[in-house]
């Protein structure tokens, strides 16, 4: 899933290791999320949103749209 984690992290001046430490995960996890190789669990996505003070859908971008019948 496309995301803006790297932009938010660099805006805060944090390294991948620093962000990983703050979130209680490994740096590999942060790297995998930033390079779109891994979609984090919902608890981790919520923790990221809380840490950056933004909504989850500001970090993660899903292009799916409901069809007219589902609206």
């Amino acid at each position: 899933m496309e995301n803006r984690l790297k932009d938010l992290r660099t805006a805060h001046g944090w390294s991948q290791s620093e962000l990983a430490y703050r979130l209680g995960v490994s740096r590999q996890t942060i790297n995998a999320v930033e390079t779109d190789k891994y979609d984090p669990s919902l608890p981790l996505a919520l923790r990221m949103a809380k840490l950056f003070g933004v909504a989850v859908d500001t970090i993660f971008i899903d292009h799916w749209m409901p069809s007219k019948g589902e609206e």
Binding site: S15, Q16, S17, A20, Y21, S26, R27, Q28, N31
Partner: peptide
């Protein structure tokens, strides 16, 4: 290659 950006604390972990 995947560890090239690793900091000292990461190595300890």
């Amino acid at each position: 290659q995947s560890n090239r950006n690793a900091e000292a604390s990461e190595f300890d972990n």
